[in-house]
Amino acid sequence: MFNAYYLQVLVVVGINTILALGLNLITGITGQLSLGHAAFMSIGAYTSAILSLKYQLPFAVVLLSGAFMAAFFGIILGFPTLRLSGDYLAITTLGFAEITKVVLLNMESAGKALGLAGIPQKANVYNVYVLVIVVVFALIRLINSRVGRAFQAIREDEIAAEATGIPITRYKIMAFAIGSFLAGLGGGLYAHYLTYINPTDFGFLKSIEILNMVVLGGMGSIPGSVLGALILTVVPEMLRFVQDYRMLFYGVVLIFLMIFRPNGLLGGVSLTKMLSTRKRRNLETNN
């Protein structure tokens, strides 16, 4: 049952999960709409790929370098722009993504439109899923920490959050940095799985694809992002049997899912909450 094709799709699901979790932290948990997640992914992918190709550094090192580079750019972009609100922030992230793409298309060391080929295939189903598990647990810890509550406070009401003494700009930048870090990590895995990257892989559509996963799974919900990544990676593959009508169905599925589950499949569901309500219920029955 686990032939190469399913393994392939499974790895892509894993990579997409990491990407979606990163965006979920920025958009779902902290409430800052980003339309440029693919840009951070491309920064991670290119940094790690160039390090791999030029200096043959170990996989763990290049992966982390890519992720940190993406986080660094996240902070750089975050500083001036995070005082913008809502859709104005969205458009700057979109603009940043386009700028990144054009810069990569002009960069000699990134191979311009020819892309980078022959990247060693280091990512596999094991290391991808180990990372997925690490990221999921780290994020759960983060969300239930003081920092995570600050993120959610910012999402719910910026002014109230500020009034209670949360330095909102600092926390927003922090969320942006961590989200970008995860995007960079996903990008590095992507590069070392497909073995070839090209600036046009990381366009607007890619950002939208990741956003779809987050919203479909349920904003702010970590199991939701995992489910969203799973569904939106597997559904297009499943729909192959409808041949040419595949993307037509994909569009319809998006619309209907949103109509029937406007808050996403697992909107408002979090693992810890599920556990704690069960505990409480147990207590009640015991009494």
Partner: peptide, 22 residues
């Protein structure tokens, strides 16, 4: 055997594996 890859390189990898294994 036809499959649409939308020009997306992840899909290209998926399709190649599907062609070969399925």
């Amino acid at each position: 055997i036809e499959a649409d890859n939308r020009g997306d390189r992840t899909e290209i990898a998926n399709i190649m594996q599907k062609f070969i294994t399925k």
